[in-house]
Design a protein around this nucleic acid. Structure first.
Lengths: 362, 362
DNA sequence: CTGTTAGCGCCTTCAG
DNA sequence: CTGAAGGCGCTAACAG
């Protein structure tokens, strides 16, 4: 375990020179610097991050605070994708990552702000935490730069950034997709009303309806709080009185619930009712039928968050709101309304071919 | 940001007393201790972990080194489960966790040992790294306690522990399950031969065959390196010449590949050929048909690893090899072999265990 | 039981 | 361009 001292001694300079060399200070003789690096390599020396973090003025560690990871549906692997993205972005510029996973069940939650102080965390990324979380507000009141994933920020706070999917655009595209296919009796299985992503998606849906001169009736908008089971129950109830031609769901999980309700009603997806989702979870490529949905690039969102928070930590200028594009994954759970009836009549045999193989290579 | 100094001053004691109070030293007056805690709470003080880690003799941070997370099949969410388990186990006892994700594609890998030194890591958990990784050996040569997940350890090194699934037992159960259902033409889609888990699973399979007086022919054991696509290709090729009644796959991913090959051959799963897997990935509950497989409890494995490495760091006695139980998930991809059932009906059950049988099916 | 005194390994003024 | 010196916040002997 070589320390900075060893390097300094062997190089015949003082430790402060070594330190400066390693931190890319400009005021070091090129030769000295070179020699130092040489010796460092020889001695297999790398700066101790802990000591560095303790003594240094500027923080180099980023905190990722994620909630709901333990309680969330196991089909839901979004947090992992985000984590991978964050890790990638953090590592790219030699920052350190410290993760803090919140379990909303456990009582003994610790203050996020304290978590940061104790670890000398200089910038943080929050994901999946609720805006009414008291610790969240405490955190916002610190002077630590913070980027939020999928959370709105009306506050014009220079210390707060955000990264989200293009919820509006994607949602608009999704609704348009159905509208183009002549669906007119559409019900929206929304998530949690107060939520930022929900609001954005709803705007997108409405915007698409607007373009067609259509309106969304209140009774055709259901709120299932992003829960598979609640969506199932709501859809089931709805189908007892009405028969729409399509469901737009604001999450894949809810789409699964809806599909279940539709099937239990003795109806077919998509022949009788089309169902589309939002997220593109892994499982959506394996449902029966495969779910047409919006793919969110969670990895990219994580990575962008890391990059953004670094930018803020380094006090560089730049936009503090990043939007990541989505992609419509056209699969088998939605079909044209009316047209498909004709199609079905003329070609019965073709259809069997499509659903057969589950395993596909991308 | 209150520091230990502030608390000491306000409490009218020296900082070392505060330090000792917080570290539960016995030689502190109960009243003093109480007062210190009181003031600490008042000042909202908690010890700075970085400073602690720098100055303390005993290390309190655990490293998780995981490989293959970025390159692995996206259906494969095993690493995430392990991570969650590790996090849980680490947090339970106020250790710190530092993660190190290796991307085998990237050239610029860093030394694991250095990673540990730089962070004052006192114990580490490795997952998914290959035994022929040079950095791995360097790590083993340090005096840092290390627990390996799903890796064998013949070495009787006091600094090395391991946590694995009960690969042998589960595999034996899996084969027995098929054997009981009268399958006799079974092919094994194995993983990577040199791998610990593969060897254990293979032993399990053989053990089950032994109990039935059967043997496994070499040509009926295929090695697909745990790859979905390779398994698909191997199965496809195999089916061109032979027609087994069942496939035992040493991973779910490979089972998907096999199912695909079976279906492409115009055969049905499980009516014509049964297929079973190992892992129980999320997707296995959604394949068509749903995959019968062995569920591994990766969360528990992660948690046990964390607990074990702590035990080693604290130099406590105890077993250094932990085995986590698996569970057979009986779903729809395997069924009884009908022709055998008929045969059996006419003949005596006793004959089943004779040598006749063995020769007949060799 | 408590205080004093060195560090842990590095960064960062401030002189020179 | 380089060196000396004083921390960062805490732990750990060692006296008292």
């Amino acid at each position: 375990m070589a320390t900075i001292k060893d390097v300094a001694k062997k190089a015949g300079v003082s430790i402060s020179v070594v330190s400066r060399a390693f931190n890319n200070y400009p005021d070091i003789n090129a030769k000295t610097r070179e020699k130092i690096f040489e010796i460092a390599k020889e001695l297999n020396y790398t700066p101790n991050i802990v000591a560095k973090s303790l003594s240094s003025k500027r923080q180099k560690t980023i905190g990722l605070i994620a909630s709901g990871i333990f309680t969330e549906n196991t089909k839901d692997t979004i947090s992992f994708e985000i984590l991978k993205g964050v890790y990638t972005g953090v590592q790219e510029n030699d920052y350190e990552l410290s993760i803090f996973l919140i379990d909303s069940f456990k009582q003994e939650q610790k203050s996020y702000a304290q978590f940061c102080r104790d670890r000398k965390i200089g910038g943080i990324i929050v994901q999946g935490i609720r805006t009414d979380d008291p610790y969240f507000h405490e955190l916002m009141d610190t002077n630590i730069p913070c980027v939020m994933i999928d959370l709105a920020t009306e506050l014009d706070n220079q210390l707060i950034g955000s990264v989200t999917s293009d919820n509006f655009g994607a949602s608009r595209e999704l609704a348009s997709y159905l509208l183009e296919k002549n669906h007119r009796d559409i019900v929206v299985m929304a998530g949690t009303k107060e939520t930022y992503v929900n609001a954005e998606r709803f705007k997108g849906t409405k915007s698409a309806f607007d373009s067609y001169g259509l309106e969304l009736a209140d009774e055709d908008v259901l709120y299932a709080e992003f829960s598979e089971h609640k969506a199932y129950l709501l859809a089931k109830k709805y189908l007892q009185v009405k028969r729409p031609t399509a469901f737009i769901c604001y999450s894949d999980l809810m789409a699964y619930g809806v599909m279940k309700a539709v099937k239990e009603k003795g109806l077919r997806v998509p022949d009788d009712i089309s169902v589309v989702g939002f997220d593109d979870l892994m499982v959506s490529d394996f449902t029966q039928p495969r779910l047409t949905t919006i793919r969110q690039d969670f990895f990219e969102m994580g990575k962008q968050s890391a990059l953004l928070v670094q930018q803020m930590m380094e006090k560089k200028e730049g936009t503090k709101q990043k939007v990541v594009n989505c992609e419509l994954m056209e699969r088998d759970s939605a079909t044209g309304w009316k047209e498909h009836i004709k199609e079905e009549e003329k070609s019965n045999e073709q259809t069997e071919h499509t659903n057969d193989y589950l395993t596909r290579y991308r």
